[in-house]
Amino acid sequence: MKNILRVALPPIFTAMALLVAWEIAVVVFKPAAYLLPSPLAILRAANIDSRQLLNATLSTAISAGLGFVIAAVVGMVCASVLSQSQFLQRGLYPLASLFQMVPLVAIAPLLVIWFGYGLSATVASAAIVAVFPVLANTLDGLRSTDPGLRELFRIYNANRFTRWWKLELPSATPNIVTGLRIAAGLAVIGTVVGEFVSGYAGENAPLGMVVLASMRSARTDLVFAAVALSAAVGFILFGAVSFLGWLSLRKWHASTLSR
């Protein structure tokens, strides 16, 4: 418990201090509300529209979560397949990294054409940006398995599947966790970008749409609220993945043992 406080308190204090400074600055300099609302004003606005914001957050969280899960599964499966064959790796990996260079904003309209407006397009958008870090890190991990341990499995006549399941995959866990943590943040970004293009208004309009709609009606306080909530979604996803990663590594990996 003491350890958790020691890790959690400094960033919390820093954030509080920044918010207080912001509040004071707004009170002192009195900028127009559409330029920079104060933190308390944002909170008040969020409270008034809490129902809509909650629905929006839920909708964004579902899309980011689904996109993340798809990216995690697809990334790990593809990396596992690629790791088994030099030929596939040489042929496909450069293409996969090239795919990563295509700006998401540019392909988002394509996703609308293919998946229509709504959840499927935003999920696809989230999955597309999140898949590459999973793939690249998993592949790195699978390939850097200790040659001594590989030889050990060879001595015991382990087949390919056993070697992958009992040796390569566990030894790649630290890399996989790293990939998943990066993917968690990216999945939320991908979702919001997707929502900008393919979002929909109404009861369950996602956070991306709330941002757009609030901007058009000069409700800067709501824009801030929606941005903060989407950051919170990313933070929770990241935290959950980090916790699961810590659970799987805590007993044996140097990154968790030395603390």
């Binding site: 006549n157 056993t162 566990p170 007993k251 990996h253």
Partner: peptide, 19 residues
Amino acid sequence: RLLPWRNVLENVALPLELR
């Protein structure tokens, strides 16, 4: 050449497991 993610018992049992 022990598997770092397995405890002692599971490491010792590995050759039999793979068999």
